[in-house]
Design a protein around this nucleic acid. Structure first.
Length: 554
RNA sequence: UGGGGUAUAGCCAAGCGGUAAGGCACGGGACUUUGACUCCCGCAUUCGUAGGUCCGAAUCCUGCUACCCCAGCCA
């Protein structure tokens, strides 16, 4: 997010400018994931905004695990989260924090509130609390609201000491039971939970709630701008209330923006987890998943994800961006950087009948026409080649200009050939295509200078390598599987993965390393799988296909 | 029904009282040893809607409508 200025840029510039609330101060943001799952493309938006704003204004961005609820969080996610953030190119230096490391401070601030008469221990059970909440037009109630300060102090300390069962009581902020904003109806700020915390162990059996903890975490770290998603907008009055009523060292400002949605996928942690657990996908890093580890394994680049987000901009409208735009950003990056190779996904044999039996020659092919400095490589050629099955049609449809009996095409960087026919099996399937080459067209240009409309790719059968190719399509068949009135599982795309064994690729791919990305000429961009591809057993994941403007008429 | 938000093309999104940027998608064409890339051209007489103010309104005012978020001891 560089050139254009969003409403957040404007707010920050106003704040650090003359007369602003942070005049002369350094912009300081934070990215606060809850370590309870893997980061996905939606989190990447927040991440780009949090780190991006700091970078743009010469400030800092902290990485903080927001781990105030031990029942949901686990250390196992922490390293994965760090890895994803680093992969996207962001750096938090030594500013890695846990919200849980502030528990002592938070406890003190809670005591401060009680002493000020601004918090009290409430013994309503969860069910009773719900009943006492009131509704849209009726205020909430609590019989414990006017409990003496000393009594709350005593009870709160005993809560901490583990004298009470889970759910027996809570510490509540004393704000306004009649507020139209439910978040202000004396929200619970501490609950009892006798559970081991991944970071603090058994030290605590009471844990602060997000609305109390988050502003304190921000203030303690000297955060100036606490950027979060829209659903926290109604929590901002509470955020500000905490900052105002507790003696924290600074006063951060919360600003909200819309989260990202993408068509043909789901982004809720619950649904993603469900797909993993039911085996609908092959783990969190399945290349079809919108998780950062999934996209990475699929072949997405950090630059493509960064560009995607920066071009989408920041607003307060719930946006659902077309998946095609993400694909566009990937193609754009890979077109400029990926090495071209020839790989035949659905091979059929091409026999050049007038080419000398036993002869082999090599051709020089450019590695990337977009970048001549990437050089060339040698590719072997002989009488029998593998070509793409759909580059031949015995009976061509309208506007088809590749191989069909009587037609000429160019074999990329090699010769012009003329199709003479094909062999078929008993069922009528094409088993081999026959052609004759024009010797004088070596390199691909006919001696008489005539135009050859089509160029197709090929692989020499003598040196071809076998490969497994995984072709991916969108995970869901509808644009918005997330919509409330439908079950998203009903719209899983049964063809989101097609595994093709026996694809044929050129010999230069023998030393392809996991995570290497290539353009398979005329087909798409592929990435050697990081888990399953090894020398002698190549596995390529299709990151995205090339655009194809060929559309048969009728 | 209370509170908080948001409405500009199929999608994202600029616009901040002076006469609707840009990108994606889509359609057409040029170029092409990738039906890719690149390059041209087209794509909102109108900004959710109805009024009002003004020489002038997507921008200001008023009413209405639609959609999103909030009644966890989740974040």
């Amino acid at each position: 997010m560089s050139e254009y200025k969003s409403f957040i840029h404007e707010a920050i510039e106003e704040d650090i400018g003359p007369g602003g609330r942070y005049e002369g101060k350094k912009v300081h943001t934070r990215f606060p994931p809850e370590p309870n799952g893997y980061l996905h493309i939606g989190h990447a938006k927040a991440l780009e905004i949090d780190f991006g704003m700091a970078e743009q204004y010469g400030g800092l961005c902290n990485l903080r695990m927001d781990d105030t609820n031990p029942t949901k969080e686990d250390e196992e996610y922490v390293e994965a989260i760090k890895e994803d953030i680093k992969w996207l190119g962001h750096d938090w230096d030594d500013r890695f924090y846990y919200a849980s490391s502030y528990f002592d401070k938070m406890y003190e601030y809670a005591v401060e509130l009680i002493k000020k008469g601004l918090a009290y221990v409430c013994q309503l059970t969860p069910e009773e609390m719900k009943e006492h909440r009131g509704d849209l037009t009726h205020p909430a109630t609590s019989p414990y609201r006017d409990r003496p300060i000393e009594e709350s102090l005593d009870l709160f300390e005993r809560m901490k000491n583990g004298e009470f069962e889970d759910g027996a009581m809570t510490l509540r902020a004393k704000i306004d039971l009649a507020s139209g904003n439910f978040n202000m109806r004396d929200p619970a700020i501490y609950r009892i939970n006798h559970m081991r915390h991944h970071n603090t162990g058994d030290k605590w059996c009471i844990y602060p709630m997000y609305d109390f903890a988050h502003p304190i975490e921000d203030a303690l770290e000297g955060i100036t701008h606490s950027l979060c998603s829209l659903e926290f907008e109604a929590h901002r009055p509470l955020y500000d209330w905490v900052i105002e009523n507790v003696s924290v060292p600074s006063k951060p400002r919360q600003i909200e923006f819309a989260r990202l949605g993408i068509t043909h996928t789901v982004l809720s942690k619950r649904k993603l987890r469900n797909m993993v657990e039911t085996g609908l996908v092959d783990g969190w890093d399945d290349p079809r998943m919108p998780t950062l580890c999934g996209l990475r394994r699929r072949g997405y680049t950090p630059a493509s994800i960064h560009n995607f987000h920066s071009r989408n901009g920041i607003s307060k409208v719930n946006a659902v961006v077309d998946f095609a735009f993400l694909e566009y950003c990937l193609r754009e990056d890979l077109n400029a950087t990926a090495k071209r190779v020839m790989g035949v996904v659905h091979p059929v044999k091409l026999i050049i009948d007038n080419y000398p039996e036993g002869q082999t020659e090599t051709f020089t092919v450019e590695n990337n026409p977009e970048r001549p400095e990437d050089g060339t490589r040698e590719v072997s050629f002989s009488k029998e080649l593998w070509i793409e099955a759909d580059d031949f049609m015995e009976v061509p449809e309208k506007k088809y200009f590749r191989l069909f009996p009587g037609n000429e095409v160019r074999l990329k960087s090699a010769y012009v050939i003329k199709c003479t026919g094909c062999d078929k099996d008993a069922d009528g399937n094409v088993t081999a295509v026959h052609a004759e080459y024009e010797e004088s067209s070596r390199g691909g240009n006919p001696a008489d200078g005539r135009r050859i409309k089509a160029t197709i790719h090929w692989v020499d059968t003598k040196t071809a390598l076998d490969a497994t190719v995984r072709l991916y399509d969108r995970l869901f068949t509808v644009e918005a599987p997330d919509l409330a009135d439908c079950n998203y599982l009903d719209y899983i795309n049964p063809d989101s993965l097609k595994v093709v064994e026996g694809a044929k690729v050129e010999a230069s791919l023998a030393d392809a390393k996991p995570a290497d990305r290539f353009q398979f000429l005329r087909t798409g961009y592929f990435c050697a799988d990081t888990k399953d591809s090894k020398p002698g057993h190549l596995v390529f994941n299709m990151a995205v296909s090339l655009k194809d403007s060929y559309k048969p008429e009728n």
